[in-house]
Design a protein around this nucleic acid. Structure first.
Lengths: 198, 198, 198, 198
DNA sequence: TATGAATGAGGCTTCATTCAT
DNA sequence: TATGAATGAAGCCTCATTCAT
């Protein structure tokens, strides 16, 4: 209404799509997918609900688009992993890289972890599962015994858990992340040794 | 599960409350809390929605009642743990007992894990958090360094993860549970040694 | 459960009906008829809803019974009025007596006044209307001109209004009631003079 | 009322909000607030319930919006009154103006009078009370004795009562309104004289 | 003289989605 | 590139009432 230049909200030319994704992810992560309504997203962006539908066909598609954008690095990691030898080095590099991926897209992963029940019924659920299996496949020796397989999975899980359950613990965030990585790397090492030794 | 012989449903007097809890937990675990409607619960029980409200004041209260009933053993474990010396034995006994508790009330814990976002806004969320902290407190040496603290938490998390993420792996269920317990026990052992050695 | 003598709530032998009426009127007057649920009444009495149905056939019948009990004096007044000459004395006596009746059953009249819309659709609505017309008939000269008729009605209304709208004014309650009665008597006097003079 | 020629309903774009208010007030006045359901309002307008929620956030807000629109004149009157000298002329002008206001928004005032119990728990209840007090304040001499204060209030009340309780009396509506105004004016005159004389 | 258990109807409200403009 | 207006489905919850015991 009126002029163009106003301090309130700048640069909103053509990046509405991006802004929707940002706000949606923020709210999804904060309150869950079901509890977040399109009305809420629209209000926070100061647009109408109908505007969301100009950019995305459904509510689910908003989530899908976020997911696809942010989990591409996992695909890349898996692709990379497939070309590597099954050495301990490789596995620890995977742990390191995955840890970085998690940190970079923390809100999304937090969302995926805290909304599993919901996500299971959505398309992203299936996709995510596939990706996690891909990750497992480049890490786990098929020959490993059950206990070691559990160790590999526990390593991945520790990384996930580390992101959120450690918030309660006192201490510096970066330090905690290091500690988590160390425990995960340790688990991988033990699993690898157990397998290659036998 | 035990009971006396009855075909589909007969003598259903006085146990409606229990039946509501059973069906509700089943559906909550399967589809999530938000996605499960009272209509659905009522239909499956062949009663009206209003009947649910005779037994429980709100939807949330159904969950609370289930939660309170099924997590009592955690309180007992914590109580027990407080009276024990901080030895490795004790900690491993805690792991064993907690593993049993999880197995006994698997659907509830699965629910809690898969609906964290929802549960966080509910009363059970707070209560659960407190209980988990209680568990941590009887397990973790306050003197342990960060990495070992992560190991303790990772042990607990491994138990949780083991319940669900291992379903994909091939193999006998009981065997898998054993493997999970072993990894958790191992983590605890390492954590304990790391701390007492120094 | 257990003994008989307990201090909490005494004498509840056979007077439950009366107690229901008391509590119901209190709640009806306080919150309105629609907003007062049988659950609420039952809870306050520490009995079940079903118990109410032992004593009264419907919710409306509770109100009817209260109404019938408490408005009998109006019928008596009308009966008395019919046998009196149409003097100013008579009219002022009516004002005085009606004022007493209002004061004695204040909660009921408050209720009737504040729930006209609801009451209109109930049986008591019609009955009350008839009673008020009876009152008007023994007070108003059919020969009075319009303005004087309004005065009579205004007198009655002033008595009603006095009960509630004067709570805001400062001052002693009894004094206020006197003042209200005086204004009403005044209006009647003016109306009577206007009519008999012409 | 006035508009351009249209049979039953045509061109109903942009005036839905107004139509909701109209129908709602009509039903509220006729059956009471509680007894009027949004379903009923929607049906009468041949829209869905959800449409109502596009225009108003809650049922109560429908009432609030009607109330705010229709009682603005009272605020204006009070504002005007504050700037006037406390003469008898002023007071009688207030009576006249207030009588007009009541006539113009008769259904709303009828509603407020017949739903006091309900309205008391609503936001409009408080607002209305404030407005009536404002009116009283510009009319009543603080120095007046109790009986005269009652007379002022009785005058206002007579105007209110006149709107509805006189429907039963035979006679021309306009004539009755005049009569009511006269009685009210009279009461004010007596109150004013009582106070200024002493 | 009451209670326990249940029902059917209906209340208000929210949601994702659509479509003409 | 959006908005205004609306819908249909469904959600949770409350109510007066009933009936076997």
């Amino acid at each position: 209404m009126g002029g163009t230049m106003d301090g309130t909200r700048q640069r909103r030319r053509g990046n509405t799509r991006q802004r929707i994704q940002d706000v949606a992810l923020e709210l999804f992560a904060e309150q869950g997918y079901e509890k977040t309504s399109l009305r809420e997203i629209a209000e926070r962006l100061e647009v109408t609900k109908a505007a969301l539908y100009y950019h995305f066909k459904t509510k689910e598609e908003i989530l899908v688009s976020i997911f696809d954008d942010l989990t591409q690095p996992i695909l890349d990691l898996i692709e990379w992993g497939k070309g590597q030898p099954h050495t301990l080095e490789t596995k620890q590099e995977i742990v390191r890289r995955y840890s970085d991926i998690l940190a970079d897209a923390a809100p999304l992963f937090r969302f995926m972890q805290e909304n599993q029940a919901t996500v299971r019924e959505l398309r992203v659920g299936e996709t995510f599962k596939e990706r996690m299996q891909g990750l497992r496949d480049i890490m786990i020796d098929p020959a490993a015994d059950l206990v070691d397989q559990v160790r590999y999975i526990s390593a991945i899980f520790t990384l996930h858990a580390g992101m959120f359950f450690l918030q309660d613990l006192p201490g510096d965030a970066e330090q905690k992340r290091k500690a988590v990585q160390e425990v995960a790397a340790d688990l991988v090492t033990q699993a690898h040794r157990g397998t290659t030794k036998s």
